[in-house]
Design a protein around this nucleic acid. Structure first.
Lengths: 217, 217, 217, 217
DNA sequence: CATGAATGAGGCTTCATTCAT
DNA sequence: GATGAATGAAGCCTCATTCAT
């Protein structure tokens, strides 16, 4: 029997997602192939029909992970209307919520970060991460630039730097929340965003009013 | 001959620091005890005179690491005079510089983060991390509160949230720099701080000063 | 549709010959069933329609191999006319040439020899080999005996021993040629045969003729 | 504790010889490292203190094997006095006896031959074999040349070819004996040698003497 | 009949840890 | 106290074989 391409790819995805769960819980080194096979409900050897090695599978999980994350951001940005401020707030919230909601997601992140230090494929990990972070910064800096052009934000902020900081702080807040369940990254992020946005306002007097004027479309 | 306590502890430190270098480069899983012994210039068996196990040693490295980091922050804060703004800026810079300067430091961080996911001692790692991040936030929020009390910052900011964001963004910026050598976390942090501080200013008329000083490029 | 017997047997042969090529190149242990299937242009599972197991197939290749070899000898011997000396020379040459010409043949030989040491079917291999070598010795000793009867060879040689040595030396020379491409088993065999035949001559006065014709270089 | 060099090398030899026995009986593929460890009375892991891999160990056994064989031949040749004929006879006998007496030796040979076909180190095997066979041929052709110079052998034989045949026939006879316990390679070799030596005699009138001396029984 | 996806037993190898010196 | 040779548990991966299609 010849599996159709989408059947093959479906099974591949099945394995990737099972692996993602196991890696998230036990880490790369702590995961044994048998665990993944069991989680996926298949035989140990079957994994090797779809992936060259444990590391290859891990990298595939990584690629799937970045895909998910990127598409999440894309959706947030493209869907939302509103002022640049609002869209920034919402993007931030949805990313932080994603990190919080899918606890596994964030654990995986940390494993991938570590893989970029010591994995044998560290350079490939770094390369992909570099690209992902650039993409995120680009999305956000575009939002900010848009706000500046509309006169919503002060013209003297550096969109690139701010974008980097926003991205960084989301990672950083999730990190703190990871260690301390009592820490609420979401409200912290909101608080922070409001300070940021105050700092960004082109016309401080507008703060209280007028935020709908710059509605898209 | 019985080694004096400080001789023992000196050798212990020797091992810890050798281990730190190796762990930073090869990760926990990728490091073998023989590497550490060689780096420390001692026999493999000797390590076990000072540490129960590989994981125990790794945790000792972690404790040493947090110590170093904390004392760095302590020094920055206690040494510096000046306005709250200035002190905030300087603390941020010195932490980011530390992360940049000692590349090993940041690699280690990532390994520790990962250990908090999957190490068998994950709970002990999380506990210590939680404490370290709380300490950092406390230091910084104290600085901010001080600024508010002096009338330097607006009274309506939440010192806790801002502190958390600052800490988070330093981590987050170093992370981005880790993946992209072209990314400059220091100037990004500076730019960011100036926006933050604008947002914090009790008296917006002060905005005009000092803002360009920290501008990138 | 049910394959006719000769269709079945044709496919069986196809597989055997594909397997022979692969075994010759990669050895028994180094060969995987997938290689054979690919070489034969069929599916992996199909092999099991014709053979019980890898070892069973290997043994079938062995039987095919001995068949080929034996029939080669038969043809040489039965076809040729001439004196016993000439027929001996020609048989030797054609066997050595066979070993040289089909490099795979000799590699296979070595694999079969090894199989007689450690294969799970080693006894069956030994049994067949024993028979094959006996057959060869019988053919050759018959030739020699024929020469003696004709008065061409001295009556005091032991046809059995000499036959064994001839067979053995052909194997042995091919072996040396296998390891050293510069070694020419054919001219060596010729030189050797001429010495042998001198030793065999019933009438030493014949010695002077023909002896140098087969001299190397 | 630091093992002395000869202690290390002693243990290495212990492992090599244990491995030789197991490889001889089960073949390379059929041997598992645990068998060797058990045969050597050591732990599985210990083997890897002395050898890189299973194949590395196998090759070490091969080198030990060729050493043994070569020194056996050296001893035979250097020890013996007598005519060239006698020395040739004795060398042949002692090699054949060696192959017969140490059954393992010959099984090993076959494994090594097969390794030269399909092992991953086949080229190294072939290289060593080539050298070993050259050495053997050189020893024997020197003996023959010596016989020619003394006037014992006819000047028109080609020492190289004959040496190759002798070496080859010893291998070939042992091979036949391997498959057929009823086959006696020793008396066959003796019979053969006497024919050869007749063919070699410088003075045919000597033929009548001495020929029966080496007859079996 | 033919196929090749799925399987899991089995083996090589690594490496943390022990312990005799 | 210091050492490093010895160990064996454990895990990645291979591949002969099966069987649903």
């Amino acid at each position: 029997m010849v599996l159709q391409n989408d059947q093959k790819s479906q099974k591949r995805d099945l394995i990737i997602q099972a692996a993602a769960r196991v890696f998230a819980q036990k880490g790369f080194a702590g995961t044994i192939m048998a665990d993944i096979a069991e989680e996926a409900g298949i035989g140990k050897g079957t994994i090797y029909e779809y992936f060259e090695s444990k590391e290859d599978l891990f990298f595939a999980v990584f690629e799937w992970f970045t895909q998910e994350l990127t598409s999440l951001a894309m959706v947030s940005v493209s869907t939302l209307g509103g002022t640049a401020s609002e869209r920034l707030m919402t993007l931030g919230e949805s990313l932080v919520k994603a990190g919080m909601g899918m606890e596994d997601m964030f654990s995986l992140s940390m494993e991938f970060w570590a893989a970029s230090v010591s994995s044998q494929m560290k350079n490939r990990f770094k390369e992909v991460f570099k690209q992902v972070y650039m993409d995120f910064r680009r999305i956000i800096s575009a939002l900010i630039r848009d706000g500046i052009e509309r006169g919503e934000f002060r013209p003297d902020v550096d969109p690139e730097s701010l974008a980097a900081v926003l991205v960084g702080s989301w990672d950083g807040l999730l990190l703190q929340a990871w260690f301390d369940p009592a820490f609420d990254p979401l409200s912290t992020a909101r608080n922070f965003m409001s300070v940021i946005i105050k700092g960004l306002r082109a016309n401080p007097s507008q703060e209280r009013q007028g935020k709908t004027e710059h509605r898209k479309g």
